[in-house]
Simulated assay, not measured.
Amino acid sequence: MNDPKVTRRQVLVLGGVTLGMGAVTVTGLSVPAWADSTAAGVELVPVGASPVAVLPGVGVQPAAFPRQLAVQVRHAGADLPAGTEVALTYDPRLYSPLPAAVATVGGRLLRTTSSVTTDPRTALATCTVTVAETVAAGSDPVVVVGTAFPVLYPRDLVVGPSNATAAVARRHGKPSGRRSLQPRRPGTFGGVATPWGLEVSGVWSRCVWANGERWYYYPVQVTLQSVGPGPVPAAAAFSLALDPQVVRDVSITTARLNHKTHDAGVRVLSQTRTASLFETRWSTRVRLKTGDRLDLCLEVRTRQPKGDLPTIKHPSVGLIGMGDHVTQRQTGRTSMSRIDAVWE
Rank of each mutant, 00 (worst) to 15 (best):
W215V: 04
P219N: 04
G197I: 01
C207E: 13
S226N: 02
S205C: 04
P231E: 13
P175Y: 07
L224K: 08
R171Q: 13
S176M: 01
R206C: 08
R170Q: 12
P186A: 08
E213N: 13
Q221K: 14
P233T: 00
Y216W: 03
G228P: 08
S180L: 03
P195W: 06
F189T: 14
L181D: 06
G230A: 00
C207H: 13
A237Y: 00
D243V: 05
L181K: 01
V232P: 05
W196N: 08
F189D: 14
P183K: 11
L240C: 09
G177P: 09
W215Y: 14
W204R: 09
K174W: 00
A193N: 05
L240S: 02
V222S: 03
V203H: 05
A241V: 15
D243W: 02
V222W: 12
Y217I: 08
W196Y: 13
A167L: 03
P231K: 13
S201A: 14
D243M: 03
P229F: 06
D243F: 00
Q221W: 00
P186G: 09
S176H: 01
G187Y: 13
G212M: 10
Y217E: 15
G202T: 09
G197H: 04
W204S: 03
P175A: 08
A237K: 04
A169S: 12
Y218V: 09
N211C: 10
R179S: 05
F238G: 15
T223V: 15
W204V: 08
